[in-house]
Amino acid sequence: MRARAPSLGSVALWALVGTILAVLVLPTLIVVPMSLTGDQYLGFPPRSWSLKWYTAYFSDAEWIRATLFSLEIAALTTVVATILGTCAALAIVRGDVKGLGWINAFTLAPMIVPHIVVAVAMYLTFARLGLTGTVLGFVIAHTILALPYVVLTVSATLYRLDPALEMAALNLGASRLQAFFQVTLPLSLPGIATAAAFAFIISLDEAVVSFFLSGVHVKTLTRKLFEDIDYSLSPVIASASTLLVVVSIAVMAAIELARRSVKR
């Protein structure tokens, strides 16, 4: 192919895309400088710099309580969703099941229904059972929201595994259970770990269902953020948001890097 100078059209395309990308990223990351302000009220750009709003965050009992509650829910959701979702993925990929299309639609439904509808429906049922504002209620809700992602991730891993490996173990005298637990399961662990990380972030970031299921005293970090954004302009919200963003991006970037290294 002959080399040629970039045409005016492609220069314009690049400039356009560069601008769009900047506008896409900057408002996402703007909470970071906002949280480092030394001013009393939120504003951008800050007039002075300081870490005082992080100190304020870590010394505020209500923020800490909401954060710890969110972390507890996310950890429990990760365990429950990963176990239930992995079992379901195994049944879908390995099991002799009929109606796979229906099972898939059934499994993916929580992903399709708008979160506001899930939130209202769960609130009406959970309130009657006394489950709102409880650890159990949140873990049930977040597990349901995370399950489709776990099932999709783990079943994709299982589909890619070479059955010959398990067959080789069987031929070498392993029992079916041994072959599964010593060959197939360890080979699926990267996929299962990815699914677990997804479940953790989905629970931690989830805002709509959490908003409705939270009580006056028992609330998630996202509910606390939601309330405070509406009523106050304290930069402590930016500090809490920054911490949430840093955790989410770190976990998701780890997943993406792991996925890429597997592909190579």
């Binding site: 703007i30 909470v31 939120l42 948001s241 989410s248």
Partner: peptide
């Protein structure tokens, strides 16, 4: 990967 809540908050401030 950034929660929609945080991105909406950025717009509220901007």
């Amino acid at each position: 990967w950034t929660s929609a809540l945080v991105r909406s908050y950025a717009w509220v401030v901007l």
